[in-house]
């Protein structure tokens, strides 16, 4: 939203999208089945979990922060939801409690960062370990699989709405809401301002601490949502779920053109970034590239994208 009307700004905005389109064209030429409706839904479904986390991460990074604890938050919230359900709590209530737990974990991050004045990288590195540990404690290191059959819960990860996988519906709903929040609310304004110049924001009377706690809570809640979807899909909560998910989320944000120094970026870019990662994963699978090489390619693409972005800024 902040690139002005300049040509360079426009290029910067559509750059990631151009990359995605290019990628799709190349993959389709290599393997036409890539563009089948079935496969497209497949890609979207695979992307949805990372995208949800990355949406939250966008807010955090826009304020100049980072959240490494998202994967652990996902696991703990998923385990809690599964645990509540197997303990007989109403599934819808259990899911809401899971979301609440995620938000609280995020709020904890926010409080440590603002009131405890700990750098976000360090704070969330610590809570990444803490939340993972708590997950292991809670699950006793074993998957929770005795989840009772329930339509609403099943819907989250496995359902369809008018033929569209429900996680994809959830992702787009979240996208629309968050786009609106970032673009049209005072909170969204605060997010950009705090990332752009924290001191000036504080002196303008913005509640900087509140905004920061807000973005981490939001990210916690979105991670929990991703955790519930994942648990529903597997119908089991894995204590190691979400390991290294923070990296894919950060990669999606960066690929989308959001600046790691804060203050500049947009959520549409993140959606595109998540899609690029998803398409790449899916395409390399279709092309039967060995999974070890896939990692190399993925890393190289991220590097390339960021370097191109730098060029444009210079």
């Amino acid at each position: 939203m902040n690139n002005g009307g300049s040509f360079k700004g426009t290029l910067q905005k559509i750059g990631p999208l151009l990359g995605l389109v290019l990628l799709v064209i190349v993959l389709t030429m290599l393997n036409p089945s890539f563009l089948s409706l079935n496969n497209i839904f497949n890609v979207f479904r695979q992307v949805s979990i990372n995208a949800l986390i990355a949406f939250g991460m966008t807010f955090v990074i826009l304020t100049g922060g980072i959240d490494l604890s998202v994967g652990s938050t996902l696991a703990l919230a998923g385990a809690l939801t599964a645990g509540f359900m197997s303990g007989g709590i109403d599934p819808v209530l259990a899911m809401l409690l899971g979301l609440l737990a995620g938000a609280l974990m995020g709020a904890f991050n926010g409080v440590v960062i603002t009131k405890g004045k700990v750098a976000p990288f360090i704070a969330t590195l610590a809570t990444m370990t803490i939340f993972r540990g708590l997950t292991l404690v809670y699950t006793d290191g074993r998957p929770i699989s005795d989840i009772p059959q329930n339509f609403s819960f099943e819907m989250m990860g496995q359902g369809y709405l008018f033929m569209i996988p429900f996680p994809v519906v959830t992702m787009f709903a979240a996208y629309v809401i968050l786009y609106f929040v970032l673009k049209k609310t005072t909170f969204g304004r605060g997010v950009y301002a705090v990332g752009g110049n924290e001191e000036a924001s504080r002196l303008s009377g913005l509640r900087v601490d509140g905004i920061k706690i807000g973005v981490y809570s939001l990210t916690g809640m979105l991670s929990a949502l991703a955790g519930i979807i994942l648990t529903s899909r597997l119908y089991s909560a894995q204590p190691t779920a979400g390991t290294m998910y923070e990296l894919d989320a950060i990669a999606a944000v960066v690929l989308g053109g959001t600046s790691l120094t804060g203050g500049r970026g947009w959520i549409f870019g993140t959606l595109v970034g998540a899609l690029i990662i998803g398409v790449l994963n899916n395409g390399l699978n279709l092309l039967n590239v060995a999974s070890f090489y896939q990692q190399v390619v993925k890393g190289a693409v991220i590097l390339l994208a960021v370097m191109l972005d730098r060029k444009k800024e210079a």
């Binding site: 902040n2 002005g4 950009y192 301002a193 752009g196 110049n197 001191e199 000036a200 924001s201 002196l203 203050g263 500049r264």
Partner: peptide, 9 residues
């Protein structure tokens, strides 16, 4: 430092 967010409009 204190007055403006230079990257914003």
């Amino acid at each position: 430092e204190e007055g403006l967010v230079l990257n914003l409009s």
